[in-house]
Design a protein around this nucleic acid. Structure first.
Lengths: 111, 111
DNA sequence: TTTAATACCTTGTATCGCAAAGTATTATTT
DNA sequence: AAATAATACTTTGCGATACAAGGTATTAAA
């Protein structure tokens, strides 16, 4: 792997920081979901996330009151922890929408 | 300061991680500049950065061969360290442009 | 000589994403 | 009944980053 490739991967990872939290709320604003579903949705959108990243993030957002969860039986395997966005989460999501739009405008201005 | 505000500031700060490195290269791709100029340009684009963030970042990029610098006399005060982008920096910038575009597409897809 | 302005640099802290390894539950296979 | 496979959730340690705060150095003006 070349130095440049390592570099790009690292910067890409940094770019995603914070944006990941935004994506989770976007996904949960549409449907309740458990971790595997969220990971697959992100994968489909070309934003790869691993469990070790997602679980702590979901716990953080739950502790902040942005999310709640309920347990649901699974047809196969252990029960699933379905996360759902709270009213506070929706309000926060609106702020993040504004922040994201602002960021895009900023980059376009510099570009 | 409300909990929500602290939260938003934090997420905004996170969103900017990595993107800052991108912004520096964008600015230097147009003109050579020293730290104060870069900070002012970012400020004008609504992306606030402080010295303690910028100087280590410039040094990192210089060590990676993305930037070079030259000293220039100042009309008032100590000499200025003018940074300029290298050919390698321009190549890397193109990769970052692609990464950014991809990220925008991804967010729009989820949104 | 002191003060103000400018410019560069360093240290310590909090946070984040991720790799890796671990725990627990259920159904299937042997 | 025991072992295995599949699924799902959790934790630990690491490297990287932005920032606050404080420090150093140079020049001109008071």
């Amino acid at each position: 792997m070349t130095v440049e490739t390592i570099n790009t991967d690292n910067v890409k990872a940094q770019m995603r920081k914070g944006i990941l939290e935004y994506c989770i709320l976007l996904i949960l604003a549409r449907n309740d979901a458990y971790a595997t579903v969220i990971i697959n949705e992100l994968k489909a959108a070309k934003m790869i996330v691993v469990e070790g990243t997602l679980y702590p993030l979901l716990m953080r957002q739950k502790n902040q009151g942005l999310l709640n969860y309920r347990w649901e039986e699974s047809p196969q395997g252990p029960p699933r922890k379905y996360y759902m966005i709270t009213e506070k989460g929706r309000q926060f999501l609106q702020e993040l929408n504004a922040s994201w739009d602002e960021l895009v405008v900023t980059i376009n201005a510099i570009r």
